[in-house]
Design a protein around this nucleic acid. Structure first.
Length: 317
DNA sequence: CGTGAAATAT
DNA sequence: GATATTTCAC
């Protein structure tokens, strides 16, 4: 059964995980103490040996440097004056660690913690790729389109790679459902596919991806009325999504698992920063007029009524 | 710069 | 041990 592309989106809702993200996040949860800086990495959790049972992951990682990531901060004038003073950007930093040995030289060599690709972030990624088209779906473009602060080209490239594999695997067995035997004729790795499925399954796969033929991209429709009465809190972008919640005591709320979705695999509803407006012009031959690319916000009615806002047009052409 | 594969951390 | 993510190399 081939459904129109317009339907593929509808399926998202059902396939998408129950948005526990709906849960009203109150910035109140974040006390000023917590809201300071983030970023941590276990310097000692690095063991080349696979045998030593060093389960000591708990170490204090001094919150080093400021969160500022890429220097691309055009922010000339923010037309979107955020009504919430708290949620726009994060304070610079307080540099109050005093722990251990000094530590304050990191401004540049900032080793970012592992980036956690949450369903939301992944969705953004997919959306960006969908808008760009496989043709221009290159890390650099995607990264720029995503405008997620903290995201780097390497991150996107890495994820893109996995995403491609996932699509490939999918084309082999689109069989919805348990498909047990791989069959498809591919006979390739099997361990990584199933695993990635969970993560990628959270985000809808645009039909265009399965379509090596069509390389046309959507013109992107501006969201005329995006005045939702319910504004969700906005926190740092990927930066906040990084690191571990356990020790992380900064811009990340102790949100654990809200509700348990049937799928059971979501718990990090962090928000990606609404990027700035225009994307840097690159030497790309194509003129992608991508004005403020607004990502769809998760708007759900706490009353069972699930409502999702999408920006891009569903119908391909 | 982009992509592929390996290494590492969780 | 498996998976996710990061890093190196081409």
């Amino acid at each position: 059964m081939r459904e129109d592309d317009s339907n593929w989106f509808s399926r998202w809702e059902e396939e998408l995980p129950p948005p526990e993200e709906l849960m009203p996040l109150n910035q109140t949860l974040i006390t000023p103490d917590l809201a300071l800086a983030f970023d941590i990495r276990n310097p000692a959790s690095n063991n080349t040996n696979t045998t030593t049972t060093n389960s000591l992951h708990q170490n204090h990682t001094p919150p080093p440097p400021p969160p500022p990531l890429t220097s691309t901060t055009p922010s000339p004038t923010n037309p979107l004056a955020s009504p919430h003073p708290n949620s726009g950007e994060f304070a610079a930093d307080s540099a109050e660690l005093g722990s251990g040995a000094g530590g304050d030289e990191p401004a540049r060599t900032l080793k970012r913690p592992r980036l956690v690709w949450t369903p939301q972030l992944h969705k953004r990624f997919v959306d960006a790729v969908a808008h760009l088209g496989i043709k221009n779906a290159v890390p650099k473009t995607i990264m720029q389109l995503m405008s997620v602060d903290g995201l780097t080209r390497e991150n996107v490239a890495s994820h893109l790679q996995k995403y491609r594999l996932y699509l490939k695997r999918m084309q082999g067995l689109p069989s919805g459902g348990g498909n047990g035997g791989g069959a498809g004729g591919g006979g390739l790795g099997t361990a990584t596919d199933a695993a990635t499925d969970h993560l990628f399954a959270s985000s809808p796969v645009p039909p265009h991806f399965l379509r090596p033929n069509s390389d046309h991209f959507l013109p992107y429709v501006p969201v005329a009325a995006l005045q939702q009465h319910q504004h969700h809190q906005q926190m740092a972008a990927a930066a906040a999504a990084v690191g571990h919640p356990q020790l992380q005591s900064q811009y990340h709320r102790p949100i654990g698992h809200f509700g348990s979705p049937p799928n059971g695999q979501f718990e990090n509803p962090f928000l990606a920063r609404q990027a700035h407006q225009p994307v840097h012009r690159m030497g790309a031959p194509v003129h992608n007029s991508v004005p403020g690319y607004v990502e769809d916000l998760e708007s759900v009615n706490g009353n069972g009524g699930r409502k999702v806002l999408t920006l891009f047009p569903t119908g391909d052409d």
